[in-house]
């Protein structure tokens, strides 16, 4: 990879239509910086985006990209990485995309442990449809479709990842630019599925989970002396319902990514101009 790649190379010339102040700006900047910092360039990077405000990210970044169907970004990323292990795959989506309509894929992408990065822009609200409850909304959060709150506990995506056998679980905050970038960078560098839940506040429809709320409540695991390779310690912070954390919660140092486990190492786009040389062997098998 060329060493002179700058993060702005990952920026398209399309102006974002996110609301001024949206957390997604910070989330995206950190992702672009982390990609540049880890030696990638737009021509070897594939960004997959879901549907929702977060899904627009593919348009605002410059790389190979697919803006897909609601909830199915992870399967697309999986296909890209298995077919092309040489390509850096970054999947982005929102909390609705990842933990509601795409929750099934999340569980299986986590356990499959394909070497890619998944940044979920978690604003605990449906923004693009103008303010309905999301799977991470608080149970008493009042919205147009839940006037008395959801009366359901929010999904704990970190715990869901842990229960699914994750090899890398982290959480960051869009506004803490440096830490967010560091954490995403670590997720990219991780050998396996790097999952980062990014607090990405919605300034228009969520007046509870605000920048101020996260600034006041976030506890940085680095400052707490947390050891992410300690599974028990990870479990404790992930299941701690009292505090909001940022940092890498869990990291399996012995993680073996899917491609390596299954010997999927070749660039599948390269094929011969006719049938493979020994293809008649396939026919002879039927004797």
């Amino acid at each position: 990879m060329s060493s002179d790649v700058r993060f702005t190379d990952f920026k398209s010339d399309k102006q974002p239509t996110w609301c001024p102040g949206c957390g997604d700006f910070g989330t995206m900047n950190g992702m672009m910086k982390a990609l540049a910092e880890t030696g990638n360039d737009p021509d070897n990077t594939f960004v997959v985006a879901g549907i929702g405000c977060s899904g627009k990210i593919g348009t605002y970044m410059h790389s190979y990209a697919l803006h897909g169907v609601h909830g199915r970004a992870l399967p697309v990323g999986t296909g890209v990485k298995l077919a092309r292990p040489d390509i850096e795959v970054m999947v982005a989506g929102g909390d609705g995309d990842g933990y509601s309509i795409g929750a099934g894929h999340f569980v299986h992408a986590v356990r499959r442990n394909v070497d890619m990065t998944y940044c979920v822009m978690d604003n605990r609200i449906y923004g693009l449809t103008k303010g309905q409850a999301s799977p991470t909304s608080r149970s008493d959060f009042e919205t147009s479709t839940t006037p008395e709150g959801t009366k359901q506990p929010p999904v704990n995506p970190l715990a869901l990842a842990l229960a699914s056998g994750a090899s890398f679980i982290a959480q960051s905050f869009a506004s803490d630019a440096l830490r967010h970038q560091e954490i995403v960078q670590e997720a990219i560098e991780h050998d396996g599925f790097g999952f980062v839940n990014v607090f990405s506040p919605c300034v228009t429809f969520n007046d509870v989970d605000t920048y101020d709320y996260f600034r006041d409540s976030l506890v940085d695991l680095d400052e707490e002396g947390h050891d992410p390779t300690d599974y028990e310690a990870a479990k404790e912070v992930i299941l701690d319902g009292e505090k909001e954390y940022q940092g890498v919660m869990y990291k399996d140092e012995n993680s073996v990514p899917y491609n390596e486990k299954h010997g999927v190492t070749e660039d599948m786009s390269e094929i011969p101009e006719g049938a493979p040389d020994d293809a008649m062997d396939l026919v002879r098998e039927f004797y």
């Binding site: 594939f46 190979y64 909830g71 399967p75 990323g77 296909g79 990485k81 077919a83 599948m268 786009s269």
Partner: peptide, 21 residues
């Protein structure tokens, strides 16, 4: 894949990546 929704999206990813999928 975990279901057909995923299967076709994986195949789509493989195809976007340039593999005959």
């Amino acid at each position: 894949a975990e279901d057909e929704l995923s299967a076709i999206n994986m195949a789509l990813g493989g195809a976007r990546a340039g593999a005959r999928s």
